[in-house]
Design a protein around this nucleic acid. Structure first.
Length: 668
RNA sequence: GGCGGCGUAGCUCAGUUGGCAGAGCGAGGGUCUCAUAAUCCCUAGGUCCACGGUUCGAGUCCGUGCGCCGCUACCA
């Protein structure tokens, strides 16, 4: 049996699992089920990425060791998938012993192939954040905390990424299906075309990682012990270690069977690591490249990116409790074209549930089954022979055929939304068919001819319902299984191959099961209220203890009181912008010349994303006049512009005066 | 700034090789009664961002402008 190996991202344990993580995993679980129905041996790997600076810091904040911290969060993930009924075949943790073995093995392979060399990495290091401030240039402050950065040079092991530029471009060219969707593919190609620099793959600035093995032929083995792997070299290898790469003969068997992966699902923010570094690592190690890499979009909550710092993280738990996991699966796969960003809101979720699941699908099952119960003593009736059926009857079966092929074509291409639309076309058509043929009226008349028409209508409807149910089983495994039982089917729905849809029509005279609504209609307002309420209860929980206290301490620091003398040290003055222009090569910076009465100051301000240069000329601004000069992009900045910081993205909004104020006026 | 994408009915979006503007949801009206107050039918007269061009004819091709978004590497 042919295999289908797919992976979710290995989730970083710095955050508790939320709906965004669930989205990736739900998609993967759906594909796994679908591929199994297609007769493939599907294997799904998920897991957690546990090393790196952020975990080290979060653990410290929580007052525990990184390992303890990672253990707790990894367990949260595992439990979440279990609660959501998501099935996986392997769960890899990058702190597993077998993973460490695999990382060392692939590193040695890359080393032997000659793609590792020792070099030095120079960057701006922020001691407060304990990390490199990548965007900062020498002399610039840390973009995260605003603290000073220093230029430090670190001895590192480098991966010769530059050697793979052409090979990667060729690969993208020859395998258009490798990076999806198209826009991401274009971005990646543009990025690689612009030139690749070698990548440092070891770190000495942190301890929480996998130590580099001693290298044969390397003279300085002692110093190597201080090196740990760069997290991405470590994490990506999880896709190999999770299926046995690096194990002994028998342990490595799944790897040899499953690799290369057929589908790797990732979030769009990590596409580069997967589309550039990862294939390069694999090429260097002499391993095959995965077939497809699919970058999905972000789940936005009420128009905003879901993130912990924004405090708008939605947990899957409440949705599962109130609407059931299948409603969530359906919503995510139907509402959001796979690959694009999508909006999640409780309102939209409940609306979709009511209109599509309750009104269309659930109600169709209910009315068809009820009529079979009432008019045919709960037995699937015999339809007329084909020649005697009406055009309407035949139309439903033809449409069903058509929908089956459109649905499978869509799912084969990971277009869940399109596939579901097709199924709903069938569902809508059957609802209409029932109104047009009026089986209840046929039952009233009860002549022989009407009786056989009635049987045909109900059989045809039930048959279409059966087809829709079977098609939808990978999307909504639990609810479709219930409808399956109500249709009187005793075989396990999840074990029926896709091809049986066409081959096994509903058997007549089978007794249908007990009818009960699978998607009861919900009162929208009350349901949304309930979801919001439950969500608020859950929001307090999440990451391991003490994290909340740590955040509190940071806030306290920020609002510490200062004396008036401290404030008087700051010289704030009114100025008028005379000249404003973009700084070449910097997307955020503007070079301003500001008239402060006594002189004109040159100031470089990071406001280019919010203000077009020409709109600033002649505008009154407030500047900090006694700031130490600093060079930004080689341009000296004498002071800074005062602006409110708005929203989580810290969008700057300039201070303005309602009354006219002379240039140079001092603020106090 | 450079590269790429997008801008179509109140909302979410389809619109293939240029040929009379579409779907779903929401809203309004109506119908049936098998069904989960569900279904089904009717109703949107929308400057297809703006301007200019190519063409017998452009949402669909070209140019310019405006607006929004993504990418522009070693935190993950």
């Amino acid at each position: 049996m042919a295999k289908f190996y797919l992976t979710t991202p290995l989730y970083y344990v710095n955050a508790a699992p939320h709906l965004g993580h669930a989205y990736s995993t739900i998609v993967a679980d759906t594909i796994r089920r679908y591929k199994n129905l297609q007769g493939l041996d599907a294997f799904l790997l998920t897991g957690t990425d546990e090393h790196g600076q952020k975990v080290e810091r979060s653990a410290k904040l929580a007052g525990m060791s990184p390992q303890e911290f990672a253990d707790q969060v990894a367990e949260l993930f595992r439990k979440e998938w279990q609660d959501l009924g998501l099935e996986f075949d392997s769960f890899i943790r990058t702190t597993d012993a077998k993973h460490e073995v695999a990382v060392k093995k692939i590193f040695e392979a890359v080393w032997k192939a000659g793609y590792i060399f020792k070099g030095s990495y120079t960057g701006q290091y922020c001691t407060a954040c304990e990390q490199y401030a990548n965007e900062a240039k020498p002399g610039e402050p840390c973009p995260e905390c605003g603290g000073p950065t220093e230029t430090i040079t670190e001895e590192n092991y480098f991966f010769k990424l530059s050697a793979f530029q052409d090979r990667l471009l060729n690969y993208y060219e020859e395998h258009p299906e490798f990076i999806r969707p198209e826009t991401r593919r274009n971005e990646v190609i543009a990025f690689v075309r612009s030139g690749l620099r070698d990548l440092s793959i070891s770190r000495t600035t942190l301890k929480w990682g996998i130590p580099l093995p001693s290298l044969p032929g390397s003279s300085s083995e002692a110093s190597q012990e201080k090196h740990v792997f760069y997290v991405w070299f470590d994490a990506l290898t999880g896709y190999l270690s999770g299926i046995g790469y690096g194990q002994d003969e028998s342990g490595e068997e799944p790897f040899r069977r499953l690799w290369p992966a057929d589908l790797q699902i990732v979030g769009k923010e990590i596409i580069r690591f997967h589309a550039v570094y990862w294939p390069a690592f694999l090429m260097a190690a002499g391993l095959p490249i995965p077939h497809t890499l699919f970058a999905h979009g972000w789940l936005l909550f009420e128009e905003d990116k879901m993130s912990k710092s924004r405090g708008n993280v939605v947990s899957p738990g409440p949705v599962r409790e109130v609407l059931g996991i299948d409603a969530l699966r359906y919503f995510l796969l139907r509402e959001i074209p796979f690959g694009q960003d999508g909006n999640f809101s409780f309102d939209a979720l409940v609306s979709r549930y009511n209109s599509d699941l309750a009104n269309d699908f659930g109600n169709l099952a209910s009315r068809v089954l009820t009529m079979i119960g009432r008019y045919f003593n709960s037995e699937i009736p015999y339809p007329s022979v084909m020649a005697q059926r009406s055009a309407q009857d035949r139309h439903i079966l033809e449409l069903a055929e058509n929908v089956i092929s459109r649905y499978t074509a869509a799912l084969d291409n990971y277009e869940f939304s399109g596939g579901l639309e097709a199924v709903w076309e069938l569902i809508a058509a059957v609802n209409k068919y029932l109104v047009d043929t009026e089986p209840w009226a046929l039952a009233e008349k009860n002549t022989g001819e009407d009786r056989s028409k009635l049987a045909t209508v109900l059989y045809t409807s039930a048959e279409a319902l059966r087809i829709a149910t079977q098609l939808l089983s990978p999307i909504m495994p639990e609810s479709t299984a219930r409808i399956w039982t109500q249709l009187g089917q005793t075989t396990e729905l999840s074990s029926l191959p896709l091809k049986s849809i066409k081959e096994s029509p509903l058997a007549t005279q089978e007794k249908i099961g007990k009818i009960e609504p699978v998607f009861p209609r919900l009162e929208k307002e009350a349901t949304v209220r309930k979801l919001v309420q439950l969500q608020q209860q859950v929001s307090g929980r999440g990451l391991p203890k003490k994290t909340a206290a740590g955040v509190g301490a940071e806030t306290a620091l920020a609002i510490a009181k200062i004396a008036i003398e401290d404030f008087l040290k700051v010289e704030l003055r009114v100025g008028e912008v005379r000249v404003a222009e973009r700084v070449k090569g910097a997307s955020k910076l503007l070079r301003l010349e500001v008239d402060i009465g006594t002189e004109t100051r040159q100031i470089v301000a990071g406001i280019a994303e919010s203000y077009a240069p020409e709109t600033l000329i002649g505008r009154k601004v407030v500047i900090v006049a006694n700031l130490q000069p600093r060079k930004l992009r080689g341009i000296e900045s004498n002071g800074m512009i005062v602006a409110a910081s708005v929203g989580k993205e810290d969008r700057p909004v300039l201070v303005t005066f309602i009354e006219d104020v002379p240039n140079g006026a001092k603020l106090r």
